[in-house]
């Protein structure tokens, strides 16, 4: 589904991604871990199409197409979804109206007819229960004044409504209380199928107990320096990152 080859990206004069290689197949769950500032969110943003970052090398193939060639909205319509680490607040735009516009533009792209108000509300209700989100949030301005946890839940709710093929969840677990973490993880699991894939960026093993990854990667200093199965996450949890830094040091 996704083939990232030697991807390099910079912002202003800072090289952040220094040759990322990653392959994600349909049905898989990948976890990306790594110390603060290593480039995890940057990778997620570049995949979603954020123009602040300049891609200086490498390629990204998504469902056989050149992902880097597409505008952010085209990527979303083709099924790429980024749950933001820091969802932005948009005063004056309600979550409902925003989601209806988004969903109908995606449907149009898929050649489906737009949903009328009634069927849209039905979809919304259904997906809301999936992440146990409070209805009152929907009529408020998007993310404005939402608590940290509410914002994260809203991201997964949007994911549920838009039904992406490739979901990238950037630290969706941080800021969630223990119950919320379970609810959100269950939501993600329910949306999983053999046709879609999930990339979760996280610092904590705990999330991975709920969303069990097929692969775990360590991103450090702009590169994926180690990959393994879910046991790698356990190892990182107990030992931290120093041993990996040392390993790299000894290779270099």
């Amino acid at each position: 589904m996704l083939k990232v080859k030697n991807l390099c990206a910079k912002i202003e004069d800072n090289e952040i991604l220094k040759g990322i290689n990653l392959e994600v197949k349909a049905g898989e769950v990948h976890a990306i871990m790594g110390p603060n500032g290593s480039g995890k969110s940057t990778l997620a943003s570049v995949l979603a199409g954020k123009e602040d970052f300049e891609v200086t090398g490498g390629s990204v193939e998504y469902l056989g197409k050149d992902l880097l060639d597409m505008a952010p909205e085209e990527r979303a319509r083709e099924g790429v979804f980024l749950a933001f680490q820091y969802p932005v607040e948009i005063p004056g735009v309600t979550t409902t109206n925003f989601l209806k516009t988004a969903l109908n533009q995606i449907r149009e792209h898929r050649g489906e007819s737009p949903l009328d108000a009634v069927s849209f509300l039905k979809t919304i209700k259904e997906k809301m229960s999936l992440v146990e989100m409070d209805q009152s949030l929907l009529n408020r301005s998007l993310n404005e004044g939402f608590s940290g946890g509410e914002k994260k839940r809203n991201e997964i709710f949007q994911m549920a409504v838009l039904e992406p093929k490739l979901s990238i969840l950037d630290e969706t677990d941080s800021g969630l209380d223990i119950d919320a973490l379970r609810i959100v993880a269950n939501g993600v699991n329910k949306l999983k199928s053999k046709d879609n894939a999930t990339v979760v960026v996280t610092h904590y093993q705990r999330l991975l107990e709920y969303i069990v990854p097929d692969f775990v990667h360590v991103l450090y200093n702009g590169r994926i320096v180690k990959s393994g199965d879910k046991s790698l996450a356990l190892e990182l949890e107990s030992k931290g990152y120093d041993w990996i830094k040392e390993e790299i040091g000894s290779i270099a």
């Binding site: 199409g49 954020k50 123009e51 909205e73 948009i90 735009v93």
Partner: peptide, 26 residues
């Protein structure tokens, strides 16, 4: 606001529509 524009576009909303949504909200 560039961050707001990106957020809307990352959900599949066209650039023109995202702009219109933000300006209407303004």
């Amino acid at each position: 606001d560039e961050e707001q524009m990106f957020y809307l576009r990352a959900r599949g909303i066209s650039k023109e529509n995202a702009r219109a949504i933000l300006l209407t909200a303004f």
